[in-house]
Simulated assay, not measured.
Amino acid sequence: MSDIRIRIDNKTFALPNAADQRHHAIAELELVVHPHQFVCLVGPSGCGKTTLLNMIAGLDRHYDGRIDMGTAGKNPSIGYVFQNPRLLPWLSVRQNIEVVFQQAPPAALIDSLLDSMQLLDAQHQYPERLSLGMQRRVAIIRAFAIDPDILLMDEPFVSLDAPTARQVRSLLYSLWLKRPHTVLFVTHDLREAIALADRLIFLSPSPMRVISDIEVPIARDRRHDEAFTESFRQQLLQNHPEIGGLL
């Protein structure tokens, strides 16, 4: 893959119960994502982050603009982790992962991913028996299992309590370091973004556009140091006052 180049000139959609009115979701948004980068999209709730991911995934094609996926005309493989884990309740953990494969599922790979996410002992359980944190880990494995060119993650840790979110975030980060993919990760949690990202893209309220594009200079082995990342967060807010109102 080469760079992913995104230019959205205009994206609107009809408002519920008001067919003659349209919501202006995105305008004049430009973004370049480099191969194997972990990019966090940070912005207020409702600004259009999920809409942008759906457009990148090809689930929404009704917009003015262009998205060049950097795959020389070939359709890239895309893994998508939604806000809701979307597990099939009649399938076990392992079967929910195997279902994404068109041919025989790679047993060794699935075993390795289950082990990385500490789910080997739960592989034959059904979703209703799992905590929300465990369900989210299954959803992450399912997206990673196909070895996607691009991994889209839409607030995958939302509604988790802080200790569980830290645990799952750490497991995700360890998995990504072993198998780097180009990641676009949506969040409105700046601490979470700093802990994960190579770059932070700050997005405005709708119509959404890029406000700031900031590199995260923290070494990978320092990301677990909450005091260190908090110091960077404070420095970031001081040096870029324009982003304070977006959080």
Rank of each mutant, 00 (worst) to 15 (best):
D213T: 03
A107C: 00
H224N: 08
L160R: 05
V158I: 11
R129S: 14
L246M: 10
M1Q: 13
S2I: 09
P163M: 02
F185V: 05
D68T: 00
V100H: 04
S116K: 14
A143N: 09
I218W: 08
G73K: 03
F144Q: 04
A57D: 02
N239V: 04
A219V: 08
S170T: 10
G70I: 01
P148Q: 04
V33S: 09
S212T: 13
K74C: 09
V138E: 00
S112Q: 15
A165F: 00
A145D: 01
F157C: 01
R233A: 14
Y173Q: 12
S2E: 15
L152Y: 06
I67S: 01
I194A: 05
S45N: 12
P207C: 06
F13H: 07
E230C: 13
P106C: 03
P106T: 06
L15W: 12
M153G: 01
T164M: 09
V210N: 07
S206G: 05
R5G: 03
A197S: 15
I78Y: 07
L52H: 03
D221Q: 14
F185W: 11
V186H: 04
R222M: 11
R209H: 15
D60G: 01
D225W: 05
A108S: 13
H240A: 07
G58A: 07
H224E: 13
E215P: 06
A108V: 13
G245S: 15
S131E: 07
L132M: 14
G244Y: 08
H181P: 03
L29P: 02
Q21A: 13
L130M: 05
A162R: 01
A104I: 04
P156W: 00
D9V: 03
G73M: 05
I150Q: 06
G245D: 15
R94E: 15
D213P: 09
H224Y: 08
E30C: 08
F228G: 02
D147E: 12
V42Y: 05
Q125V: 04
M134Q: 14
Q118W: 06
P163N: 03
L29D: 03
P217Q: 03
S131R: 07
A162V: 12
D111T: 12
L151Q: 01
I8K: 00
H34G: 11
L177N: 08
L171F: 03
N54H: 08
P44Y: 10
T164F: 00
E192D: 10
I110F: 09
Q118M: 10
R142H: 04
H34R: 15
H23E: 15
E215L: 12
M208D: 07
D64R: 14
G79R: 06
E226G: 00
A107R: 13
G43R: 07
G48M: 01
P105K: 11
D213Q: 11
T51W: 00
S116W: 09
V216P: 04
H24D: 13
L172G: 06
I78F: 10
Q95R: 11
P35N: 11
R5P: 02
V158D: 06
A72N: 15
F13N: 09
D147Q: 12
R142E: 00
P44C: 07
N10C: 10
L151A: 02
R223G: 07
S174E: 15
S159G: 01
P207D: 09
L171W: 03
F185P: 01
I140Y: 02
I97P: 01
D20M: 02
I4T: 06
Q234E: 14
L160V: 02
P89I: 02
A57T: 05
R86H: 14
L91E: 06
A108G: 04
F38Y: 09
L160S: 09
T182C: 02
P241F: 12
